[in-house]
Structure formats: C-alpha cells, structure tokens
Amino acid sequence: MKKQITILSGILMTVLFSLTSCQETMVGYENNNSSESNFQQMWEKFDSHYGLFLVKNIDWNEVYASHLPKARAAKTDAELFAVLSSAVHTLDDKHINIYTNSKQLTDYNSGENGHIPAQEGFDFKVVREKYLTDYQEITEDFGYGKLTPEVGYIHIDAFKDKLSVFENGMDKALNALASTKGIVFDIRDHTGGSDHVSAYIASRFAGSRKLFMTAKKRNGPRHDQFAAPVEWYIEPTGKTQYTKPVILLTTSTTLSAGETFTFAMRENANVTHMGTKTAGAFSDVIAHQLPNGWIVTIGVGDYRGSDGKSYEGIGITPKIVSLNQKSDVLRGVDKTLESAIERLR
C-alpha cells in the first residue's frame, strides 16, 4: 500500500502541475488562507466539478450549511482538517483524498473514512517466489510467466506507462503463453492508470466487439450538467488474441482503471472473474490546491457498466468469490491462486 500512496501522490502532482494554466481562478481566495476560505474553496470546487452527487443522492448544500459554522470556528490546522474530512466523508468515495503534507495530520481518504488500509489477502512476492516459474518482468508493474506448464500468468498493478509499452508487452506475453490451456490475469493490487490501456489489453482477449462501459464528465455548474456520454468497446485487437480460458483475479484494492479493466474483461466470454469485489472508485480525478497548500482530489465523471448501472462505492462482485486469509499469505500460501490454477488445469 505504500507503493500505492507513492504512485497516487506522483500522479496527483503531475495532474496539478499540468492543469495550472487552465484551473479556474476563484476571486477573493488567492491571498485568503482562513479556515473559512479553505473550506469554501474546497466546497465550491466539488460543487462545480464532482460527478457523482446524483448517483450518491448527496445534498451538497446541506453539507455546506452544516459545516460552514465549524469552518468559521476552526482555529488550528487540526480543527480545519476535521471539518474538511467530515465534509468529504459524506461522499464516501475512495477517489477523494486530502493531502496535507503534514506529519501531524497525515492525509485522509473519504471512502475509507481515513487511511486506505494495507492489503492483507495478497502479496505478489508470495506469488513470484512460491508459485511462478520463468517470470519475465516487462516493467516494474507488468510481467508474465507460468504457474504450471499448462497455466500461464500475467500480473499488472498499474496502467501508468504509455500504450506502446503494453502493446509490445502483451505481444511478448501472449506469444510466450500461446501453448497454455489457460491464463490467470492478476490485478489484485492494481492502483489505476489509463482507461485506454484497460480497453486495449482486454481487447487482446476478445472474440467479438462488445460495449463494456459508458462514461460522462461534468462540464457545467449544475450537478446534472455533463458532456455527452462516451461509449467504450472491446474488440479483437493486436497481432493475436488469446481466446482460451482466462481467470481474472481482483480484490477490494483493485481500483480505478483496474475496475474499468474488470468491466472490459467481464464482457469476454472466455473470462471468469474471481476473488473479492473491487474498490468501487471508477471516475477520473482532478487535483486542486487549497490556499493553505493542501491538495484535494475530485472525481469528475459518472462511469457505468454495460448494464447502465453505476458501481461507484459498491464495486464489482466476482462470479466466484474467494478471500485469502492473512495467516495463509504470511506463511506463503495463496489459496485463491491455487483454486484458479485448478480450474484451468
């Protein structure tokens, strides 16, 4: 999980710096670092950009009314942090973070009511050392190998590299695993990245063209004001497609582009989803810096599965539920992976 926080922090700073020239200027706040000003600016930024008020049935005006007096009364950073945390807690969204750059206050994640917990039911080190043979690392986030002579394995924990990296990597992986009877595709520690990469990789396992997601993003001041929905499809892509059985493994820390990838893979008839349900945090985010230097992240979209339903805050439930126990993982045993291997033999 330390790696996840590092990745998120890097992404957030990249987003923040890349958007500096086009962020809105909020009159009256530039030199006002009061607790009230910090709260109002955060509230207004969510009010104008957050994409899930209607999905979550949130009365954001009520949040303003109930928290403004507390913000006015806040005299310390700790008191302000408590007010801001309480306000975004209402949204119950794992994509919403408050980064304070403070050892005393640390950071806050809305969907976890605090800090994202460390994953206890999966450790890639266990898989690599105890189960894999001939593992080939394409990048630090992407590799492949074999679990048995007949069962292949692909592990990706982020889609942060350029698409070309995954195009070349998938060519290598699928060529090396072409003779297998099936593949375990493991994204149990996936931290997110590009939805275009999600669609591309899932399409390497596709037998036909299918809708897997629709997404729309806020583009106006009203909570119901969005750009036209964009439809996302999988279809046979790349030099070769792998259409033999695939088992996709997820956990509750599989989030963001890992979840859009799950949407896409589940549309392939040869893919079986196994593990525990995903995090339930799909939307793209923007980062905004408050007058006091703290950074907040805001989900700007409304992402739906091919069934038209929103899974924000819910997650995608696997067809086969399998939960590893911490005690097993600590002694080097991955029972979910072992079950997946047996199903593919």
Rank of each mutant, 00 (worst) to 15 (best):
T76I: 05
D77W: 02
L80A: 06
V83T: 11
L84W: 11
S86P: 08
T90G: 05
D93N: 13
D93T: 05
D93G: 05
K94L: 08
K94H: 13
K94N: 09
H95W: 04
H95S: 09
N97I: 11
T100C: 13
T100R: 13
S102H: 06
S102G: 13
K103Y: 09
L105W: 07
D107H: 15
Y108N: 03
G111D: 11
E112C: 15
N113R: 15
I116T: 15
P117V: 12
Q119H: 03
G121N: 15
D123L: 08
V126G: 04
D134Q: 07
Y135Q: 05
T139K: 00
E140Q: 15
D141E: 13
G143M: 03
K146C: 06
T148S: 07
P149T: 02
Y153I: 04
H155I: 01
D157M: 11
D161W: 02
L163H: 01
V165Q: 00
F166V: 02
G169Q: 03
G169C: 03
G169K: 02
M170S: 01
D171V: 03
D171R: 08
D171N: 11
K172Y: 04
K172W: 04
A173C: 03
N175Y: 01
A178W: 05
T180P: 05
T180C: 13
T180V: 12
